[in-house]
């Protein structure tokens, strides 16, 4: 008889790793299935994670203390999930894994900034995404070339691909407000003479210490905040970018000329997962839907659990807590 796993975890991001780590520590047989060639998901790419200041790599390392006890399959493609009485058969890269439970922790996809063509991503090299900014810090490179000026000006554009009916997105990606201010501070630290302006719709500083971050950015780093969406970015003179917007607090149209733009790209629902050839239930934004109001990780299929940002945009802290909760739920389910 084929060996039976306790859990197959689809997604090797922080949610999947947290859950796998806890279950492995408790002696459960776990398989982690990751699409990319390394584990850690999006978080592994982040240079610093707010509010604890860890790098993404450090954070991922903390989640892998017991993972030598689990089986990790990278470069993996889930072909099929099928129910067979009280267990599931998950086919990964053509190989079948029998398991009591399946955890969907597929996280999110990043919004493709090319779709907001008016923001000039892919046209002007000085327009980059928040991910490229983190990558630059990771590689110890400067994201923008400012050799032509002593006092560079940068703009950070919030809500790119979030809360934007024009690109079919109604949800808020939740973390970009905080991450955008963090990026402004980092730019200020790397380019001490620069001026940074954040263009926002609302600043949703919901978590503890977020409001302080916002306050601190204004008082200590002199970051400017303008409430207005960028309508278009074009090439101005001297290689600068021309941003058009409206300052909706002052009620006037404004034009800003800057040396670099960072687009805070939002979170999009992950690729669909099928169980018995049927899509898992989704909410109106395309993220996976929890079937139970009390237990945040249940789906309508007993034994199929969901956790992390595949349920909707989440901060790292929230994702880790959710993953811990699902570990408990899976442990209980397997014990039963």
């Amino acid at each position: 008889m084929k060996e039976l796993n306790d859990a197959v975890i689809i997604g090797g991001g922080i949610a999947g790793l947290q859950c796998a780590n806890i279950l492995a520590r408790r002696g459960r047989k776990v398989v982690v299935v990751e699409r990319a060639d390394t584990i850690g998901g999006h978080v592994a790419q982040w240079h610093t994670c707010y509010p604890f200041g860890l790098t993404g790599k450090e954070l991922v390392d903390k989640l892998t203390t017991h993972l030598e006890l689990a089986e990790i399959i990278t470069n993996a493609e889930v072909d099929n999930i099928e129910r067979e009485r009280d267990k599931y058969a998950v086919t990964v890269n053509g190989k079948r894994h029998d398991t009591r439970t399946v955890l969907i922790a597929t996280g999110y996809n990043l919004f493709d900034a090319h779709i907001k063509e008016e923001l000039g991503y892919g046209v002007y090299p000085r327009v980059i995404t928040s991910v490229e900014l983190e990558n630059a810090w990771n590689n110890n490179t400067m994201p923008f070339d400012t050799s032509d000026t002593d006092a560079p000006r940068f703009a950070i554009v919030h809500c790119v691909g979030s809360r934007d009916l024009k690109c079919n997105v109604t949800h808020c990606s939740k973390v970009c407000c905080m991450a955008g201010i963090k990026a402004a501070k980092e730019l200020k630290q790397h380019y001490p003479t620069c001026q940074v302006t954040n263009y926002y719709m609302d600043l949703r500083m919901f978590d503890t210490s977020y409001e302080e971050l916002y306050h601190n950015a204004q008082t200590e780093f002199n970051v400017q905040f303008v409430r207005g969406r960028i309508s278009e970015i074009s090439l101005g003179n001297k290689g600068r970018l021309k941003l058009k917007s409206e300052d909706t607090l002052l009620g006037i149209p404004i034009v800003d000329r800057v040396h670099g733009v960072v687009l805070m790209i939002g979170m999009q629902p992950p690729a669909t997962i099928k169980v018995d050839n049927e899509d898992l239930a989704k909410n109106q934004n395309g993220f996976l839907l929890q079937s139970d109001p009390i237990n945040a990780n249940l789906t309508e299929h007993p034994g199929i659990f969901i956790a992390g940002a595949c349920k909707g945009p989440k901060t790292i802290t929230e994702t880790l807590a959710d993953a811990k909760a699902v570990a408990l739920a899976i442990d209980e389910y397997v014990t039963k």
Binding site: E117, E118, G120, V123, Y124, S231, E232, I233, S234
Partner: peptide
């Protein structure tokens, strides 16, 4: 057309 800078380029 101003919202599609790729075309202009």
């Amino acid at each position: 057309g101003k919202l599609t800078p790729r075309t202009k380029a």
